[in-house]
Design a protein around this nucleic acid. Structure first.
Lengths: 153, 153
DNA sequence: GACAGGTAGTGCGAGATCGTAGCATCGGAG
DNA sequence: CTCCGATGCTACGATCTCGCACTACCTGTC
């Protein structure tokens, strides 16, 4: 009977994946502006965040974390090492690989970029009609579901 | 007293914006694979979706929709026009601008890419522990909050 | 212990992104 | 009507992304 306003049409562009795309683009645009006067852009800031939390991580693991192809990560590494923010330490037990760590300079850069990031995050959270934790939980579930779907190819 | 496992630390990378970034990257990676054998990639599919729904839209509006700089949209337009999927029609009342529409070929390409997209979307929704509509609602709120935060610069 | 197939990372090159600068046009002030 | 600042779009170029092809190394089999 199709009397719901709910999207059922084949050409309704509105769906979780599309909305994720739009939201992420808006988020990155916001952060790029917020971080404009910092040394890092939004992408870098995110990568540094992963590195900092991980402590030590291999390029492959990083690639999986950020769902990026290995070659892209490779380029990042080259750039960040040249910048003096990341150091490559040998991987114990696998000589094909190595491990990445933020240098002190890298940690410092991340921290001071955080000074620009945090107000933007606070502004977004303040504008949310419900607790940020709820939204974050929904995102985690979605992220997990995408992971499951990806396995089923 | 800090006895919750909940993130409170200043250097906890976990937050709505970071999680949005991770989730979107995963979504795009999934779609790029799902659409690999189609004529459109994930980015194109999203743009075509906007164009199709909008009917007619100016480059500037499109740029605002997808939170992209004008130059990026300009490149897209050039490519899509060359591909024969988009047509530029004069803008009534503003000769600096014009309006974009999907050609029949463009609509067809979008539809057939949809054949690859929909199963992926269905797989994600099936893996979600709660209704996709809930998650989508949370995303819309977040998107809106980012928009509000962006105005406050 | 040698070989085969799989896995980790990289060089390269085609194409994409987006900041800067620049042009055409608009719209309001006088 | 004539300015002039604001707005819409694009050319160009520096930088980034990522598929393909390749090398080095790991691991299981015989």
């Amino acid at each position: 009977m199709r009397d719901r306003s709910s999207p059922v049409d084949g050409d309704d562009p509105s769906n979780v994946l599309f909305e994720t795309w739009l939201t992420a683009r808006a988020a990155i645009a916001l952060l790029d502006r917020a971080l404009a006067s910092a040394d890092l852009d939004a992408e870098d800031f995110a990568v540094y965040s992963v590195l900092r939390q991980a402590g030590e991580i291999s390029p492959g693991e990083l690639a999986r974390w950020m769902s990026a192809p290995a070659t892209t990560v490779s380029s990042h590494v080259k750039r960040l090492v040249a910048r003096g923010h990341v150091r490559q330490v040998p991987h114990p037990g696998d000589r094909r690989s190595y491990r990445l760590t933020l240098t002190d300079a890298g940690q410092h850069a991340h921290t001071s970029a955080g000074q620009h990031f945090l107000p933007a995050l606070a502004a977004v959270e303040a504008a949310l009609p419900r607790p940020a934790g709820d939204v974050q939980q929904a995102l985690r579930e979605l992220h997990g579901a995408i992971g499951v779907a990806a396995e089923r190819v």
